[in-house]
Design a binder for these strands. Sequence first.
DNA 1: GCTTGACTTAGAGTTGACTCTAAGTTGTAG
DNA 2: CTACAACTTAGAGTCAACTCTAAGTCAAGC
Lengths: 122, 122
Amino acid sequence: MNIQKFSEITNLSPHTIRYYEKIGLLRNIARNASGHRWFTEKELAWVEFIKRLKDTGMPLDDILKYADLREEGDSTSEQRMQMLQAHAMKLEEKIAEEQFHLQKLKEKIEHYSKLVELEVNA
Amino acid sequence: MNIQKFSEITNLSPHTIRYYEKIGLLRNIARNASGHRWFTEKELAWVEFIKRLKDTGMPLDDILKYADLREEGDSTSEQRMQMLQAHAMKLEEKIAEEQFHLQKLKEKIEHYSKLVELEVNA
DNA sequence: GCTTGACTTAGAGTTGACTCTAAGTTGTAG
DNA sequence: CTACAACTTAGAGTCAACTCTAAGTCAAGC
């Protein structure tokens, strides 16, 4: 598929896709006869994985390191696993923290709702 | 307390504290005889709340809007409550999404751990 | 055969949230 | 009474992650 189609499916702008290629997140993208990028399922799966890492707070630099290891082949699978494990642990902590924040927010909202009730009945 | 002490307690750098004052997140901060900022429990509670909103992904611009409403007094409490409710809902969605991502990450880790096991036994 | 619109590139500009610099003032310790 | 650390300000610089611009190429429809 061309960059437009790929952009629609991945929900990344063509700009962002080229940017990801420029910084090395996307590599060895095929080109058609007129020099336009040609994407396949392979890129789709990889980009979805990049998005997962990014959306859970991993910086692009770290994702880049993962991409480097990935390119080196199977000998780096243990390293990659360790990266993911460390990241998963951080994510678990982050979720726990957010759940705590959420509870505090709900308490504040409860406080407001009582306040507003008082105003209405005044 | 002075800015140094306030910085230690809030875990924000003096730079950041001044920045927050400059953009209007912190207002009406008292000064001592020599013109230095003087913080109290009131600022502490407010800054902790700011941090909660920020740490759950609310942009400073939105927190600023909240600060504006807060300054207008009790008549805006319903609006503020609605802001918090909307934010809490988004946070709940975000947590759910992150939990989904976490599960997918764990599946990938599981996949790697099998791969690594194969390599070790090879 | 010419316009239109999608593609290409290198590189500049933007945004959010800081973070630092320079130049100056003040309060305390030696 | 002087050195020194902490404070003050306005404004410049940084960083991540885009996002856009300019200048150019190319295939398809009229």
